[in-house]
């Protein structure tokens, strides 16, 4: 949030006197902007409009193969979705995935506070924590699949400290009780360094005197964290929670590469449903997939609003 200014996302100032625009500048400007505007229209705005339209049509399968245009069917796709237990499971799993948001944000903020000290080695820790962020999801899948394997490091480590008896090892991604949380841990692993960096940027803005004054007043670090760091970091926390909420609701890649939605659909998420309906199997259904995508978009929008409300209310409560 504090970074938005250096990147200049502020709109330009309105032109004070209504001087006439020069034709030359106007033509040049649109000439320079043309590639970006054409690409954005074609690959960002058109998909949004056409994808929304497809949600209300029958399109895919035989109809698509014959080259027929999408056929308007109103809310039929949404009725199908509401009656499809797989979609309800998928949507439920995506909402359940939101559990990660508070855990991930609290952990990232805590880690940021820990590495924000002037002690030897902090730059090293920061860089090392960021490595998962620059690791491709496909490599993460290769590595974590071995960790979670029945004979993998997780079972070995837990067995070594006697948390799991030797004979009852299991594959964490093959067990419907654990697969969901195992996938979530990979999201956590890839995310905490990312949010840590955003929080570090925010922490630079907290005046050191405030911290020192609190120390002199005898506030321990736990108290300082909750009564200085958290309140002052509220804008950054809001931004990060928002990013994290939308990312959690849209989780797809982790699921795709680790479990493909299984076992027994325990990790099948809403976007997995969208992807699967549109591209997996022979009966691809762009209409139904787009409708499911629209539902996810609406839920994401509602959650963003809730996120803002929650923060504003807790703001008002304190002041």
């Amino acid at each position: 949030m504090a970074r938005s200014q250096p990147l200049g996302i502020k709109p330009p100032k309105p032109n004070a006197p209504r001087a006439r625009y020069s034709l030359r500048d106007t033509l040049l400007s649109y000439g320079f902007l043309a590639p970006a505007l054409i690409l954005l229209t074609l690959f960002t705005f058109y998909p949004l409009a056409y994808g929304s339209y497809l949600g209300f049509t029958e399109y895919g399968g035989a109809r698509f193969a014959q080259g027929l245009a999408p056929k308007w069917i109103g809310l039929e796709n949404f009725r199908t979705l509401a009656a499809d237990p797989l979609f309800l499971t998928a949507l439920g799993n995506s909402v359940k995935y939101l559990v990660i948001v508070p855990v991930l944000q609290l952990a990232s903020l805590s880690v940021a506070v820990l590495v924000n000290k002037n002690l030897p080695g902090m730059a090293f820790f920061r860089a090392a924590y960021y490595i998962p962020v620059v690791t491709s999801i496909s490599l993460a899948a290769v590595m974590w699949d071995w960790v979670y394997n029945k004979e993998g490091t997780l079972n070995w480590a837990l067995g070594a400290v006697r948390l799991i008896p030797e004979g009852s090892f299991f594959g964490w991604l093959n067990n419907e009780q654990t697969a969901f949380w195992a996938v979530m841990l990979v999201t956590f692993w890839r995310g905490f360094g990312y949010y840590m960096v955003l929080y570090l940027a925010g922490l630079q803005g907290i005046p050191a005197e405030l911290e020192e004054a609190a120390v002199l007043d005898g506030a321990n670090s736990w108290k300082r964290f909750w009564s200085i760091t958290v309140p002052l970091m509220k804008p950054t926390i809001l931004l990060c929670s928002l990013l994290s909420t939308i990312a959690a609701l849209r989780v797809l890649e982790e699921v795709l590469v680790l479990t493909n939605g299984g076992p027994l659909n325990s990790t099948y998420t809403a976007l997995m449903y969208v992807y699967s309906k549109a591209f997996q199997g022979f009966n691809f259904d762009y209409g139904l997939a787009s409708a499911a995508g629209l539902v996810v978009a609406v839920v994401a929008l509602l959650l963003s609003v809730v996120n803002f409300r929650l923060f504003r209310e807790s703001d008002g409560g304190e002041s």
Partner: peptide, 17 residues
Amino acid sequence: VIIATLVLPGETTFIVN
């Protein structure tokens, strides 16, 4: 318009693209 691309929902983009 360019700022809007940051917040637009992209759930169905990959299908249409």
